[in-house]
Write a protein that binds this DNA or RNA. Structure first.
Lengths: 122, 122, 122, 122
DNA sequence: GTGGTCTAGACCACT
DNA sequence: GTGGTCTAGACCACA
């Protein structure tokens, strides 16, 4: 089940973002263990160190804790903290840029809705 | 007037995008000359090679032409071509991603409008 | 009564050091039995193997002896030997490092005394 | 000029601490460039990635900034911030532990002064 | 020239 | 079983 990696971003960041999305989505729940570094590495066909780097970032961001010799576990509150932080980041940083870009490109609502509904069927 | 460069994108791409925005916006008009590589480099406090790389990309994309000994000039039709290409790219690639992200974060229309109107005053 | 384990040191070493401190402090006395591996493991919420590793180190260092079928017992002279060894280690290895660090950080006696008296009430 | 690395701590952390000490000491000054990753790697006979990991931590802690394609530079205020943070950490976390240990070991001032003056001649 | 990323393989410490 | 560290060597993007 090899996922396709984009070339414009390091794999470890893409993996980290996938895991964050899974936490937000409730696919991975608080208190649960993440799959082991070696397992993700095997599943996604990447080097264990690359996977490990993604996990280390999650620890740094306070979403995951390391239990020595046992593995990595999703912390309590991780979903809520993550959701809040991502919402804030989106609304305060990304969204204004998007609005500016839409305005620059002179796009109107109709076009946006069409593009959204046309593509959003997955 | 040192512009702040983002760290997550190469400077030359950021410069290129600024120039493209100025063309779309009508700040730079077709037939006009771009400021010289040396001038932008000085204005923006960057390496001339970096500025030159941004210009080279504009040439590659058919928006600008180099006239030997005279400088770089914005081609006729540049604005229209650019606008079309950017609109297409936005609607087909970026916008669907944005919609997906909004849905993942569970943001509602009200929040989006507030964030947009609050920030969109420049 | 779950003790908090530091993340920068193995649990088995932290446990060992706690026991050594209890011997020096006279909380555990020579000739007495240590609590069973299973009991410490349950009390401290750790893996029995981890507890067992701490005990094994104490045996290696000649502070404790294993009596088959009976448990682990603190040896005669354990307190004195331990105290001497730890004093030597502290004065010869740790203390010079501390002095160097204090000097590097430019801390003066007043600050040290304040910090010591403020915290040393337990 | 191969430095000796301790075995009880990863090399990249030891390197990071050496650099931090050099900043506090004024051997490396704000605004200056750090030696390149490849240079330290060669000087200290370590793998470039190991050196790079030390530098990455310094960036994470806000002491150093990365200038794309140019190298790593010590930020303004790095020395002051570092000094404050390290002093606070020492006084609030390390020093109380040390006091507790001295008290546990029953060491008196005379012994401490002797050990300090005997060793502190470098 | 700079740093970043990835691989492959090895060894270690902890539980 | 778990994650951490290091090496050696390769390739890439940036200025």
């Amino acid at each position: 089940m090899a996922t396709q990696w984009k070339n414009d971003q390091p794999i470890y960041l893409q993996l980290k973002e996938q895991i964050m999305a899974m936490i937000i989505d409730g696919i991975l729940n608080e208190g649960e263990a993440l799959p082991s570094v070696r397992k993700v590495a095997a599943d996604y066909q990447i080097n264990p160190i690359t996977a490990s780097k993604a996990y280390a970032e999650l620890v740094d961001e306070g979403l995951v804790e390391k239990k020595r010799g046992l593995g990595m576990f999703i912390l309590k509150g991780a979903r809520k903290n993550l959701l809040n932080a991502e919402q804030k980041k989106f609304l305060e940083q990304e969204w204004p840029e998007i609005i500016k870009r839409i305005s620059l490109l002179g796009l109107d609502t109709k076009q946006l809705i069409e593009a959204a509904t046309g593509k959003n069927k997955d």
